Amino acid sequence: MRIVDTHLHLVYPDRFSYPWLADVPALAHPFPAEPYFAEAAALGIEAALHMEVDVAEADQEGETRFVTTLDPRIVGAIASGRPERADFPAQLERLAAIPGVKGLRRILHTSPDDLSEPALFAENIRRIAPLGWTFDLCVLARQLPVGRRLAERCPDVQFVLDHCGVPDIAAKAIDPWRAEIAAIAALPNVAAKISGIVAYAGADWTVDDLRPYVEHVIACFGWDRVVWGSDFPVCTLTADLSRWVAATHDLISGTSADEQAKLLHRNAERIYHLA
């Protein structure tokens, strides 16, 4: 079963500045394309979307230009932007001129909860709808209502909820995350990404630790609104790419070939307009 990885981070410290990596020394070194694809190819990953890596603001557009020309297996990029600012339309125009951009992300899980509340933020997010772009929604479990309110105000924008809504799997915290996932899944313009959860599962995670979270997300969103992502190299904090792919296959082993194809590549190609 071929896989489209919708959440690949590549790190090039010689080219770009990543201020947040000062707090994560395990990730504070190069993660270039070549070793990722060497491992990924053997796992059935044939294509990947590059997800912005929260570079310094001065490097945002440079990162997007760089990754979209780096390797033909990188079939698109989710760019970083600042929709809370009045000059966002000019930034959007510059990003839209870069071939291969498929969507936008503004990190919210490390931002104040009210960052996305002003009318200007939603107004600017609505500007991406005519481009056919997605907005990847990265919020903590407690911020799921924040993400839901934003998606409600932008009904014509396709949102993708990153990392299953960032549940605290290590603490086995399932409520109120469970109810909030059901609430945001009720919005037809939101899809969910099965990604990133091993980083929140503790060093000794098992597939059974992940199972109730993944199964709940799929039950709420349905097989037509889920995509898969590696969250490489963040996944290496508690595993490696191969182990996460193996865990994914284990988690969906009892499902049909059609359902697996939807999760692993078909939905990504439709939602991110890759085909």
Rank of each mutant, 00 (worst) to 15 (best):
A77P: 01
S256F: 01
H7R: 10
A182N: 10
G44T: 13
P13V: 10
F16V: 05
L115I: 03
G196D: 01
P118D: 00
D113M: 07
A119N: 08
R73P: 01
D156L: 09
W228S: 07
E152I: 14
W133I: 13
D59N: 08
R126Q: 09
L137G: 06
R127S: 08
Y200C: 00
I271A: 03
P176M: 02
A28E: 13
G196F: 06
F232Q: 13
A119I: 10
P99E: 01
Q60S: 15
R142N: 07
E117S: 04
P188Y: 13
L251T: 02
A246Y: 08
A219N: 05
V55F: 14
P167T: 14
H109V: 07
D59S: 02
V207S: 11
A22W: 04
L274G: 02
A151L: 09
L43Y: 04
I197N: 09
G76R: 02
P30G: 08
Y18W: 12
A26D: 11
M1E: 09
A247C: 13
A183F: 07
A42M: 05
H273R: 15
Q143D: 07
Y213P: 09
D208Y: 04
V217W: 12
R82W: 05
A42T: 14
D23S: 15
C220S: 14
L161Y: 12
F31A: 15
A261L: 10
V166W: 10
A173M: 01
S17M: 03
P32F: 01
A261K: 06
M1G: 10
K102Y: 00
K193P: 01
L108D: 01
Y272V: 04
T64A: 00
R73F: 04
Q158T: 15
G100P: 03
I125Y: 06
L150P: 12
D168P: 03
R73D: 01
F232E: 04
L131N: 06
I107K: 06
R82D: 15
A257Y: 00
A246L: 08
R105W: 00
R148S: 05
E84H: 15
T238F: 05
I194C: 12
D59F: 02
D54S: 11
A28K: 12
P145M: 10
A179L: 11
A247Y: 14
D71F: 05
G229N: 09
D175F: 03
V245T: 08
V55M: 13
I169T: 10
R153P: 11
A201Q: 08
L27G: 13
G229K: 07
A40T: 08
D71G: 00
G196M: 13
P188N: 15
Y200W: 05
I125M: 04
V226T: 11
G165P: 04
D136Q: 10
R243G: 15
R106N: 06
I125L: 09
S17Y: 03
I174M: 08
V166E: 07
S242H: 06
H29L: 05
A219C: 03
A183K: 11
R2S: 10
A192H: 14
M1V: 04
E215Y: 03
